[in-house]
């Protein structure tokens, strides 16, 4: 019995170490210029601000992650990016439960706030507007891009339809990354 109690106490000390370490590091990174793989960062301040004509976003087909900052909160994180017909999109899964919405809080902020954002790809920052898409045929292009880049690389009509259904049901949220109007 004593050994069981001591073992549980040791395990709880390890758990405290891990929890405090993660919380402290997250606090320490909160104002960094951009996110790390593990922790969100602060405002994206370095990098050239794109001011030319609207780019063809199909170049992001070779980009795995981008840095996204929401103006409403000045926080940034690494997220996936999709492209279809020259336009850029970002999606957020697991949005059909409270834990998912807590984890992917940036999507809730974008949907309920102004949607104004800054995207940084490499050394270039793009001032953007995130606009949520609930339905429509452009969801097929978004689904194909997600499956091709991040889910095995073989989009079929069935898998595209399934992903589109997830967006239309609200389980996954999709945002168009548009120029600021």
């Amino acid at each position: 019995m004593k050994m069981v109690k001591l073992s549980l106490q040791m395990l709880s000390l390890v758990a405290i170490f891990i929890a405090v370490a993660m919380a402290t590091l997250r606090f320490n990174h909160r104002n960094d210029d951009g996110p790390s793989i593990l922790f969100p960062g602060g405002a994206l301040v370095s990098g050239e601000l794109h001011t030319g004509p609207e780019p063809n976003w199909d170049f992001t087909a070779d980009v795995q992650t981008v840095e996204l900052e929401l103006d409403d909160s000045d926080s940034s994180r690494l997220i996936w990016i999709q492209n279809a017909d020259g336009k850029a999109y970002v999606v957020s899964g697991y949005m059909n439960n409270w834990l998912g919405r807590l984890w992917k809080h940036w999507a809730v902020e974008a949907d309920e706030g102004s949607g104004r954002a800054v995207l940084r790809i490499g050394d270039t920052r793009y001032e953007r507007q995130l606009v949520r898409i609930h339905q429509g045929d452009e969801l097929d292009g978004i689904a194909e891009s997600v499956i091709r880049k991040y889910a095995g690389g073989n989009p079929t009509p069935e898998s595209i339809a399934g992903f589109r259904a997830a967006i239309e049901s609200g389980a996954t949220w999709a945002f168009a990354v548009l120029p600021r109007g």
Binding site: L13, I16, F17, V20, A21, T24, L25, N28
Partner: peptide, 9 residues
């Protein structure tokens, strides 16, 4: 443990 961990980090 909590204090030492936070200070080290």
């Amino acid at each position: 443990v909590a204090v030492v961990t936070a200070l080290c980090m």
